[in-house]
Structures are given as C-alpha cells and as structure tokens.
C-alpha cells in the first residue's frame, strides 16, 4: 500500500503552549482514519498543519512521499490535499451551484482567465451537476447557501472539497452542529466517498468513529497517545483512563 499522507515529527507551539508534539501519522491510500481526543487536544491544529493553514515549528508533512512542508495551502490543494472546516467556510450569499462552480473552476485552472465567461465552461458546470447529485443537493442547487438548513450546508462544505478531486481529504468534524436527526445524511455521504481517497476525520461521536474508521489515532495534549484498529483502541487501558473512561465529552 502506498502512503498518501504522512507527518514526521510534527511540532507546533503558540508561545509557551505546545499544541502539537512530535506527531507521526500516516495515511495509506483509501484509508479511513479517525482522529479523536478530548477538547483542546490539538486536533484542528494538526489538520491546520497538514493542510498548510499553519506552518509547523518542527517536522515535515509528506504527500505521496513528497515534502510539502513549505508549500502554501493553495499549492497543497493543487497536489490533492483538501480539507473541510469545522465551521462552515462557504460563500453564504451565493447559490450552492456557484459555490461548487467556484471551487471547480479553480481546480480546472480557469480561475486565472479574465476573458472567458464562467458560465461558458460546460465541463465545469457538468461536473458541478454531478457532484451536487452525488450529495443529493440537486434540488438545492439554485438556493443561496445561507437559506439552506445547517446539515445541508455541511454537505456543501464537503462538495467544495470533493470538487478538488483530492487524493486525501481531511474532514474536521463534518457533522458538527448538525441536529442528530440529520447527521445520518452526512454519514452516508462520508461512507460513500470513493475508495481511492484517503480520509482523515476528526469526530467526537464515538458511534460514528467506530462505524467509519479502520484506524484510530488518539491525540491528547498535542501528542499521540495511542494508535490502532478500533478494537485495539477500545481495549486500550490508557485510552480508557484518560479519554473514554471519564466519559467527559464523548
């Protein structure tokens, strides 16, 4: 199996606070990997370091074996590393369709062309329609994002990322803020993601984690506490003690 994404000794501090400590993490192509840990464990920071939103103080990020540590977030996306955000980062005043079209235009390299009408790019529109259908959003295509129920907005968040045709997807709490009655929609979408994509998901809901993940990494205070299959993690005494056991925010 080829390694899709790998971090080597990743470290990051904000002032005196060390939020990421010597993190070694590896995703194979097609992996379904869950990143769990108590609040403040540094999960989102780790995703920010991987995606390029933050620069690490130590260590490296490798994408398909290539060092991308110094690349900007935009360049990493171009190379196949895409992410979603814990809080929606969408164009709330534009239609769902256009949100996806903007993302697709970037991937198709049309974003630099100031002369061609964006609506004339039939390949992009075609693909937008396909992606929206894939996420069951076709009936909402023409609605403004801010008029959508929150659960659907989370789907648009995923659609924006899928449009990049990533080889690695980092999903930062994709179901966060979604009423439990709707969260199954998002789960179904994640479960149906193409097999070749390596997926790293941050999630608090243990049901989701154990149903979805083939590998689980437990992050505590910025460092990896344990890593393994769901069964290993469930039986790990250390994990139970500091995380599962106290039942705090699970």
């Amino acid at each position: 199996m080829t390694v899709a994404l790998e971090t080597v000794g990743l470290g990051k501090s904000f002032g005196a606070l060390q939020v990421t400590r010597d993190v070694h993490l590896s995703l194979a192509a097609g992996d379904r990997h869950a990143l769990i840990g108590p609040n403040g464990a540094g999960k989102t920071t780790l995703v920010n370091l991987m995606s390029g939103a933050l620069a690490p103080d130590q260590g490296q990020v490798l994408l398909a074996g290539r060092d991308i540590t110094t690349l900007s977030q935009a360049r990493r996306v171009k190379q196949g590393l895409a992410r979603t955000y814990q809080i929606n980062q969408l164009f709330a005043d534009l239609s769902v369709l256009e949100n996806v079209v903007i993302s697709l235009s970037e991937r198709a390299g049309a974003g630099w062309n100031p002369w061609r009408r964006s609506s004339a790019n039939s390949a992009v529109i075609d693909e937008a329609v396909v992606i929206l259908a894939q996420l069951d959003l076709q009936d909402h295509a023409l609605s403004l994002v801010r008029e959508l129920p929150y659960g659907r907005q989370r789907l648009v968040e995923i659609a924006m990322t899928l449009a990049q045709r990533p080889s690695v997807m980092l999903l930062d709490e994709p179901a966060a803020g979604v009423p439990s009655a709707e969260s199954h929609i998002i789960l179904d979408v994640i479960a149906a993601l193409p097999d070749h994509i390596a997926v790293l998901i941050i999630e608090h809901d243990m049901d989701i984690v154990f149903r979805f993940a083939t590998t689980i990494t437990v992050l505590v205070a910025g460092a990896i506490l344990a890593q393994g299959s769901p069964a290993d993690i469930a039986n790990d005494e250390q994990v139970q003690a500091v995380y599962l056991g106290d039942g705090g925010d699970v």
């Binding site: 995606s51 939103a53 900007s72 977030q73 935009a74 360049r75 996306v77 171009k78 895409a82 992410r83 955000y85 980062q89 969408l90 164009f91 709330a92 005043d93 534009l94 256009e98 079209v101 903007i102 993302s103 235009s105 970037e106 991937r107 049309a110 974003g111 630099w112 062309n113 100031p114 002369w115 061609r116 009408r117 964006s118 790019n121 992009v124 924006m160 990322t161 449009a163 990049q164």
Partner: peptide, 21 residues
C-alpha cells in the same frame, strides 16, 4: 469570468479560497 468570480469568492470568504487552491 471565472477570474472575476474568484475575486467575489475572495471578498466573500478568503479562507475558503485558500481551501480550494
């Protein structure tokens, strides 16, 4: 153009534009 729409995107949510490359 797609270029022009990307500007509207930058105005609307620059974080997302980084996120779509």
């Amino acid at each position: 153009s797609a270029f022009g729409r990307s500007l509207v995107g930058i105005k609307g949510n620059v974080e997302r534009m980084h996120g779509v490359g």
